[in-house]
Design a protein around this nucleic acid. Structure first.
Lengths: 168, 168
DNA sequence: TTAAACTTTCAATAATTATTGAAAGTTTAT
DNA sequence: ATAAACTTTCAATAATTATTGAAAGTTTAA
């Protein structure tokens, strides 16, 4: 396999995986492109490589900055902005986990708490099943939340070391 | 808060969370409805409660069965099919993890392996960055894969017990 | 058989989400 | 001030994804 072909396949695969997980395909692709690029790239270069419009490139780059996955760079004597991706997979994983927790898990935890307060007759199967299921999901969600918390604070080696211990 | 209102909020929240994670909103909503329902429900009842069409209900119910999250039930002397959701959150989490691994992680691992075979000049920064990034992602993906494997085989108590040990 | 009761299919349509591209905005150099 | 170089915005449009509903299919009972 050639490098050029491999690059394309990587960008495609990353884009597909992203879209299956609710992440805009273009965002995943730009991220993939920057991940495998040794140097920071301009909007122009990104537009060209991925065949996307200026508007799309600009907005998606801003989103990626918002996710904490890439950063702007400036080169001395140039007005153009360059974009560079953090290549540390542990940082990437943590950053994604952090953002999705904030954007998606936290709001759900809030709703779960709120609806857990529902009052009713424990003899009513409708009520009993509701509170049991919601309570169980709440517990699971809180476990996930705690685990993410640990992961966000952890050093990579420590975290994976702990995971490996699970396999004995 | 009333039970009826709480139910609605739960179904809504579950649907929203699902759609943010690449799961069809209707699928998440039907699942939510069945999760909080003490009895198995008919297609008719589901259509009515969620205001969706017969076609949508039927196809989504089949999908949910495909995901291993619900099952058909038959009542003696009746021709109608009833649908019932497994209420064990640990089973649900495992089932979802299992299916997404099969559908999404496995194909990506395959691509990563394939493109890892790319050959080139280690002095070329393009080549070096590509192989480094892809290699790192490969490692992370394999760690996730192993962890899922352990999770799928594990008893709930054992799994969360191990996670808790991480907090010391 | 026939028909009633029920399930499945799928082309058409609707709803949602992503993308474009040109105009407006901003910054810098002269 | 002016203009060139560059970035941002956003209404219009395209692409994708979800949903409908009616027809076709299936099963059961008489």
């Amino acid at each position: 396999m050639e490098l050029t072909e491999a690059k394309q396949k990587f960008i495609e695969a990353w884009g597909k995986l992203g879209s299956e997980w609710g992440i805009n395909r273009t965002m995943a692709q730009i991220h993939a492109l920057l991940l495998i690029s040794p140097d920071a790239l301009t909007t122009e270069e990104i537009m060209e490589t991925l065949s996307i419009s200026r508007g799309n490139a600009n907005m998606t780059l801003r989103d990626l900055i918002g996710w904490g996955l890439i950063e702007k760079q400036h080169k001395a004597g140039e007005r153009k902005e360059y974009f560079y991706a953090d290549k540390d997979t542990w940082n990437i994983a943590r950053q994604v986990a952090k953002e999705r927790r904030k954007r998606e898990l936290d709001p759900v935890l809030k709703v779960l708490d709120e609806i857990s307060k529902v009052e009713g007759d424990p003899k009513d199967p409708e009520f009993a099943t509701f509170t049991k299921s919601v309570g169980d999901i709440n517990k699971l969600a809180r476990n996930v939340d705690k685990t993410l918390d640990t992961m966000l604070k952890a050093e990579e080696s420590w975290f994976w070391g702990s995971i490996f211990k699970m396999f004995k």
